[in-house]
């Protein structure tokens, strides 16, 4: 983390007196609305909160014991992991392929690029609604498309795997643009001289990609991995609107389950907080492991 020890304005004494003025607002806001709630989440995960009155009662580890025996929780955990496992490499691979394509000679290249990242600015709710227009089993666009071309009709809503696939597909739709942007930026930073040198030595296109380009994409890949995993573990809006977690629990993810538990008919905010804590711990653990791995891989170069 040497990047953090960048020299600032050097002053004698214990530091700049107006530092609190400048750092204060953001520290206060983040402390009050992010750090404090995270601490409170740990506390509330050990309590039972009465619906309506909000009275708090200490229950120790009961919520975590409930969780250990809760099949829906494990289903959501599994679904979330599976979702991340498919969408993270999927969006990154497609993003890289698109970045390579969009970095090559193409007519109307800016237009093509714009089209790929346009879905990024659409809200999760809107994406979910557009998804339901596409995937509706009785009146959806994809059904009409399948009938027109004589293809088999997919039960997007009533079959668990198909519903899961619908969530994955719509997620890829909005995520590939982000991966493409990052990879495109990284590709453009690859010095052309490297490619020219490799070419002079007779390297094929694939060899140049494999041995020149790919190694230089490491930092971008790491960044995308972290960002995409955080996104995947947080996924809520799209699932909530598109499938509501169904059919059954086929598309239930930790986000929707935590919300339903705390604010849905179960009205169990203590348990909801406990689920939230688990999501946080998993996200944090993954990030730290990745960070250490990436640091080890580059031998502390950063």
């Amino acid at each position: 983390m040497s990047a953090l020890s960048v020299p600032g304005v050097r002053r004698r004494g214990r530091g700049d007196r107006s530092a609190p003025l400048f750092a204060g607002p953001v520290v206060l806001l983040a402390g009050l609305f992010l750090v404090l709630p995270m601490g409170l989440a740990l506390v509330f995960s050990l309590t039972e909160i009465a619906p309506l009155s909000g009275k708090v009662g200490w229950v120790g580890l009961t919520n975590f014991a409930t969780m250990a025996a809760d099949p829906t929780f494990f289903r959501s955990l599994l679904n979330t992991a599976l979702f991340a496992l498919v969408t993270v490499p999927g969006s990154m691979a497609i993003g890289l392929a698109l970045a390579l394509l969009m970095n090559s000679v193409l007519p109307a290249r800016p237009l093509f690029r714009t089209v790929v990242y346009l879905p990024l600015v659409i809200s999760g709710v809107a994406v979910g609604l557009i998804g339901s227009l596409l995937f509706n089993e009785t009146s959806g666009v994809l059904r009409a498309l399948a009938l027109t071309f004589g293809l088999p009709v997919v039960p997007w809503q009533s079959s668990g795997p198909a519903a899961f696939a619908s969530v994955v597909l719509i997620t890829l739709w909005i995520r590939v643009g982000f991966c493409m942007i990052i990879y495109l930026a990284a590709l453009q930073a690859v010095p052309p001289e490297l490619h020219e040198a490799a070419q002079v030595e007779g390297a094929s296109g694939w060899q140049r990609f494999r041995h020149v380009t790919l190694p230089l994409l490491g930092p971008a890949t790491f960044f995308l991995l972290i960002m995409s995993v955080i996104y995947s573990f947080n996924v809520f809006d799209t699932v909530f609107v598109l499938t509501g977690g169904g059919p059954g629990s086929a598309t239930e993810v930790l986000g929707t389950y935590a919300y339903d538990t705390a604010f849905g008919p179960a009205r169990d905010q203590g348990y909801g907080a406990a689920i939230g804590v688990v999501v946080f711990v998993l996200t944090m653990a993954f990030t730290l492991v990745q960070w250490r791995r990436s640091r080890a891989a580059r031998d502390g170069a950063l």
Partner: peptide, 8 residues
């Protein structure tokens, strides 16, 4: 994650 701190 947002859902981790919803309740508090």
């Amino acid at each position: 994650p947002t859902q981790a701190i919803l309740v508090p």
